[in-house]
């Protein structure tokens, strides 16, 4: 059994390496260029760039990308002014933004979710607002945030916050509202106060659902940071992706 399992994981690994190799070779061949050099006006050739004039592909090949990647990875913390920082510094900025936005979302979503889950009145009253705000795209929040907040960094944090708050809010409310009635009845017959009940019965009972919401939210936050930083600019892990492209 163990031998069998090992051989299948070994074969799967080998197959993955093979697929990667095929991909890299295809990439290399596809970007190696046509070789045909066109005669053109030197002024026009300057405008078109080296790629067009020397018959090379506009897309960098795997060797080029690999070399640049290696260069960034070996020196992740250099700082040459606001528009040229190492990969490590930029990643740290992105993580800090995601962390800030996500933390704010947790602080708002979980208490509010508790309120909505525990009170039918609040649930009904807040439902229209949630239903209207929830489907708004992160891209739609961006200009609004930039216009009102002005600061690009804070805008990014706000967009992450507003996009990652919904799954957590809805899951928390759902988890709290669907705590088994028997458990609540136990707490009631034991004359447990509302505050103690929320922490000793509802929180542990709803914890799996709340955690699911938190996991969905962190995924969304990480997706949204790319969109947010693409528009707001500044020191980002995104600027690294586009500068790799242009070098």
């Amino acid at each position: 059994m163990a031998i069998n399992a090992m051989s299948i994981s070994f074969r799967a690994g080998a197959l993955s390496v093979l697929i990667l190799a095929i991909f890299l070779v295809t990439w290399h061949i596809a970007t190696s260029g046509t070789g045909a050099v066109q005669q053109m006006d030197p002024e026009y050739a300057k405008l078109m760039g080296l790629n067009a004039t020397q018959g090379k592909s506009a897309m960098p090949g795997p060797l080029q990308v690999g070399a640049t990647l290696w260069q960034h990875l070996t020196n992740p913390f250099y700082d040459n002014g606001p528009n040229d920082k190492g990969l490590g510094i930029q990643l740290a900025y992105s993580i800090a933004r995601v962390g800030m936005g996500y933390l704010l979302a947790v602080m708002v979503a979980i208490p509010l979710g508790f309120l909505i889950g525990m009170s039918q009145l609040m649930s009904r009253a807040l439902d229209p607002f949630i239903q209207v705000l929830k489907p708004i795209s992160p891209l739609a929040w961006m200009p609004l945030a930039l216009y009102t907040i002005k600061d690009s960094g804070l805008s990014a944090i706000f967009v992450i916050f507003i996009c990652s708050v919904w799954p957590m809010l809805i899951n928390t409310a759902f988890g709290v509202a669907s705590v088994r009635k028997e458990w609540l009845n136990v707490a009631r017959t034991l004359e447990v106060g509302a505050f103690k009940r929320a922490f000793t019965v509802i929180l542990p009972a709803a914890a799996p659902t709340i955690l699911t919401g938190m996991r969905i939210s962190i995924g969304i936050a990480w997706l949204v940071i790319v969109a947010a930083e693409m528009i707001v600019g500044g020191t980002t892990s995104r600027s690294r992706t586009s500068s790799t492209r242009s070098s």
Partner: peptide, 19 residues
């Protein structure tokens, strides 16, 4: 007037806290 500790209930589905 409400639930009280002087009346204990044994529930049909035991209703223990699994955590």
């Amino acid at each position: 007037e409400g639930p009280a500790l002087d009346r204990a209930v044994i529930f049909q589905g035991h209703a223990l806290f699994p955590w």
